[in-house]
Amino acid sequence: MNTNNTAAIEKQKRGLGLKASARISNTIIYIILVIMSIIWLIPFVCIVLQSFRCESTWIESYVIPQKWGFDNYKALWNSDFPRWYLNTFIIALVVSAVQTIIVLCMSYTLSRFRFKMRKGLMQFMLILGMFPGMLAMIILYRVLDDLHLTGQYGNAVPGLILVYVASSGMGYYVSKGFFDTIPKSLDEAARVDGANRAQVLNKIILPLAKPIVIYTVLTAFMGPWGDFVFARYVSQMYPQAMNVAVGLQSWLATTTMVHDNYTLFCAGGVVVAIPVAILFMCLQRYYVEGVTGGAVKG
């Protein structure tokens, strides 16, 4: 009885001790997390605040505007920005559709079929991926120029779509990893029942692959919004041919440009970021699945 009691008291003491130390470490973690959240959020809060600033267009060392208003958004509407936005939107729509088809074709084939050149093909693409993509770009841009698909001919959208889509087969890793996890017995069962390979893909695999299809569409759609290098080459810095990234960067290219356009840039950044971020946040579950799956498989 007595020993039992002491054991119980001992246990309680240890429990209390544990709880106290856990509380301290949890408090420290909360403090770190709060500080981190502030650091991570500051730039986004500041950019939104500064986009409403009316008293000056250049960089100021304070955040809260002295005079609030929609001047920057109105000015945005009258600048080249709507054109850039439209360019990027068209590119993103087409690319997300075509790139998804190409990536799925590629990854499904490499995951499910065993043909003679499979290993060699994958090694070849691995080596190909080690060349900087820009190396191919600087020559493709000359070819596109020869085909009159660059900025100086007024419209860079078809050329950019071609460039983004054509090499997208190289990015098959993540979705191949996903297809590898779908059991092969499903295919075999359908084949025994008399389905051909195309029917297996359409009727069995694709419905199961919804998460990875959404992941591919999402990343393909987000890509063109953030691409700077390729769009920079193909647009040749002609304003009507730029996408949002190149256009907004051109507003901050020189000191005088920054002086005239800084708040305009903030407003443009907000207009670009909000729809993309909302779309991403709605589909983030699929993105997280894709990212974690892809990294684990290497």
Binding site: I59, E60, V244, G269, A277
Partner: peptide, 30 residues
């Protein structure tokens, strides 16, 4: 909160942060 940096196109946050740290930018002001 952390994922927000992935959701917002990188070029916006990078360009903006670069200006935040400029000579007369917000960080120096703060």
């Amino acid at each position: 909160i952390l994922i927000l940096t992935i959701a917002i196109p990188q070029f916006i946050s990078l360009l903006y942060v670069s200006k935040m740290f400029s000579l007369n930018g917000i960080v120096n002001g703060a």
